[in-house]
Design a protein around this nucleic acid. Structure first.
Length: 385
DNA sequence: TAAGCGTGGGA
DNA sequence: TTCCCAAGCTT
């Protein structure tokens, strides 16, 4: 593999290499996919490694064996969107026990499903999961479409998931590109263009090394490699079956790929959560269907803004007391500092909306993590007043 | 198109 | 503690 020389503009060099390899491939009549993996050596080496080292996962058939039930493949792929394997495992077990197929999931109660998803994050996935199950049950005779295009039309199924399910469940050749594959490919070919601009190039490169045979195993092998060997920090190149083909390894700084454009800082916001308790029950509300934590059960909260809102947005007029204890929680694009407001009332007030929930069973309410965290803090406050 | 959307683990 | 990151999708 070409070693990087003293060059003021890596992207120019990269393009030159790209062009030469393209010409070479074209002249051999191999493929128009660029650059090519001349004899499929990368896929062969990777699958050989996968046959020995594949992770054992509840939603995965062992290498070279018939595919797992498409329902489980699909469910696992949705849960795994932006979520790590260890986090998904207990949720996958819970869901497949309670809802073992499309028919049972399609018949699930919305609130039950949202509560079961609580803590896993990205709650739009849960709403789309239900919509998808009902579409499959109602319009596809309970069977997932077998093609990438058919899958892509389902709610919550984007480019990655459609390709992954087609390849893993139905043995269709599909180019599966997730964050692992992006990292592996960007290192293999020393892609200098930063993400996300490099996505089309990386997809083309991934296409060039994807085999016709065993596409599902190949996709999972790429992801296993990315998760266990070709990690974001401190990659274990000495254990990598592809190090002989890896431009980033040759260059000596594989951990610096993929290049990325810097992310903007996360702003700080402030909010207040309200805990009003009467007769051993606390007032909970349901958040609007769309937007942050959409459709989830929650504690009443005022606005989240740059300055502490204090008691603005209180659910009822009462004698509120703001605790010294604060909760901090990080969301994807902002950080939240939460003040805790409590009211002790003798008579249960009338409220426009919401439900009174037994405090002793608050764990079963299916609260998103930020509210569960606050509920625990309120519990500690109450005990020590 | 770029921003909005959760959470927990690891360094 | 803080930051980065992860089997992305939707609008």
């Amino acid at each position: 593999m070409l070693r990087r020389g003293v060059c003021s503009d890596f992207r120019v060099l990269e393009d030159v290499v790209f062009f030469i390899v393209a010409l070479s491939c074209h002249s051999r009549g191999v493929s128009d996919n660029l650059p090519c993996d001349f004899d499929g050596a990368i896929a062969r080496d990777l699958l050989e490694w996968y046959d020995k080292h594949a992770r054992v996962l509840p939603w995965r058939a062992p290498p070279g064996t018939p595919a797992m039930d498409p329902y489980r493949v699909w469910l696992s792929e949705v849960m795994l969107q932006q979520t790590q394997v260890a986090t998904v495992k207990p949720y996958f077990e819970k869901f497949t026990t309670r809802w073992p197929d499309f028919a049972s999931l399609a018949a699930a109660d919305d609130a039950d499903l949202m509560a079961a998803w609580a803590g896993l994050g990205y709650y739009a996935r849960a709403r789309n999961l239900l919509a998808c199950a009902r579409t499959v049950a109602g319009e596809h005779d309970g069977q997932l479409p077998r093609t990438e295009a058919g899958l892509r039309a389902l709610p919550g199924v984007g480019g990655y998931t459609a390709a992954a399910v087609a390849a893993i469940a139905f043995d269709e050749r599909a180019v599966v590109v997730d964050a692992n594959v992006e990292r592996v490919v960007s290192r293999l070919f020393a892609v200098e263009t930063p993400l996300p601009a490099a996505k089309p190039r990386i997809h083309a490169l991934a296409d060039g090394i994807t085999p016709d045979a065993r596409p599902g195993d190949f996709a999972q092998a790429m992801m296993d490699l990315g998760a266990t060997i070709c990690t974001a920090r401190a990659p274990r190149c000495m254990l990598c079956p592809l190090r002989g083909d890896c431009a980033a390894h040759s260059g000596g700084m594989p951990e610096t790929y993929p290049r990325k454009t810097p992310k903007p800082e996360r702003p700080q916001r402030h909010g207040t959560f309200f805990w009003i308790e009467q007769g051993g029950e606390v007032l909970l509300v349901r958040r609007p269907e769309k937007g942050l934590l959409g459709g989830m059960r929650a504690l009443p909260t005022g606005p989240w803004q740059a300055e502490p809102p204090k008691l603005a947005g209180a659910p009822v007029a009462a004698e509120w007391h703001i605790s010294d204890t604060h909760i901090s929680h990080g969301f994807t694009h902002f950080r939240l500092d939460v003040a805790l407001a409590m009211a002790d009332v003798a008579v249960r007030p009338e409220v426009d909306q919401g439900e009174w929930w037994p405090v002793a069973e608050i764990e079963a309410a299916g609260l998103p993590t930020v509210f569960a965290k606050a509920a625990r803090a309120f519990g500690r406050e109450r005990c020590c007043i």
